[in-house]
C-alpha cells in the first residue's frame, strides 16, 4: 500500500510551486503600497506600514510582472486545490485529515511528548493529532485566501462579497493575514517533516513508506531519534511492514 495516492502526491507538489509563486508575487504586489490605510485615512491594525518586504522574498521583478504571475497562478492554485479536495473526499483520505473527537486532548499529548513531559509517543494512525489539525486547516486557510483574493480583485463587480468582508481595505488585510497564516503553517510543516519524519518525504514522491521508521516507531521528537539505529531493522525483517 502506498502511503499517499498519486493524486495526493502530484497535487501536493503542484501546490508547493503554485503557492510559492503566489506568496512571492503577492509580496511584490504588496510592496507597491506596503500599507492598508485609505489615502487620507488611518488603519488600526498594521504596525509595519510603509516598510517594504525585502525584495529577495518577492517574485515577479516589478508590479506588472508580479500581477501577471499572481493572476495566472491563482487558477492553478484553485484548480489544483479543487482536484485535491474532491479526490480526498471521494477516495476517503479525508478520514485521516479531519480532526477527530478528542483532537485537542491528543494534540496536547503530542505537545507534552515533544517537550519531553511525556515519554512515549502517543499512539496515532497515519498522522498525529497536530498534523491533523495542520493539514485540516491548510485547505481552510487556502479557501480563505482565495475568497479574500476575489474580493480585492473585483471590489466593484463582486461588491457584496467585498462588503461582507468589511470593504476593500479590510478584505485586503484579511487576504494578507491568510497569507501570513499559510506561511506560518507551511514553515512549521516543513520544519517538522525534516526534523521528525524525513522518511515521509519519499512517501510524498513515490508513495513508499517504511512503517518501521515512522515517528511513532522511533519515538521521534524534533531532531531526536532522527536516524534509525541498525537494530531497528530486525534481522528477520519482522519490524517492517
Amino acid at each position: 500500500m502506498k502511503r499517499h495516492h498519486a493524486v495526493v502526491r502530484i497535487t501536493h507538489w503542484v501546490n508547493v510551486v503554485a503557492l510559492t509563486i503566489m506568496v512571492g508575487s503577492g509580496l511584490r504586489i504588496f510592496n507597491a503600497y506596503p500599507a492598508f490605510a485609505r489615502k487620507g485615512g488611518t488603519f488600526c491594525c498594521y504596525p509595519f506600514a510603509g516598510r517594504a518586504i525585502p525584495a529577495n522574498l518577492t517574485f515577479g521583478g516589478w508590479l506588472a510582472g508580479a500581477r501577471n504571475w499572481h493572476f495566472a497562478m491563482m487558477w492553478v492554485l484553485v484548480a489544483n486545490g479543487l482536484v485535491y479536495l474532491a479526490f480526498i473526499y471521494l477516495h476517503g483520505e479525508w478520514r485521516d485529515l479531519v480532526p477527530r473527537r478528542g483532537v485537542f486532548h491528543d494534540s496536547w499529548q503530542m505537545v507534552r511528548f515533544y517537550v519531553t513531559a511525556r515519554k512515549d509517543h502517543p499512539r496515532q494512525g497515519k498522522h498525529n493529532a497536530l498534523q491533523r489539525m495542520a493539514y485540516f486547516s491548510m485547505p481552510l486557510v487556502g479557501i480563505l485566501a482565495v475568497i479574500t483574493g476575489l474580493a480585492i480583485w473585483k471590489p466593484v463587480e463582486l461588491s457584496p462579497l467585498t462588503n461582507l468582508l468589511g470593504g476593500y481595505v479590510w478584505a485586503r488585510y484579511w487576504h494578507f493575514l491568510a497569507m501570513v497564516l499559510l506561511v506560518v503553517l507551511t514553515i512549521g510543516h516543513i520544519f517538522m517533516v525534516f526534523t521528525v519524519d524525513p522518511y515521509s518525504i519519499p512517501s510524498m514522491i513515490t508513495g513508499r513508506y517504511r512503517e518501521d521508521l515512522s515517528p511513532e516507531a522511533r519515538n521521534a521528537r524534533p531532531l531526536v531519534h532522527l536516524l534509525p539505529s541498525s537494530a531497528t531493522k530486525a534481522p528477520d525483517g519482522s519490524a517492517r511492514h
Partner: peptide
Amino acid sequence: AMRATRGHAA
C-alpha cells in the same frame, strides 16, 4: 525491539 533501540539512534 524498536523501543529498545531508541537510545542509540540520536
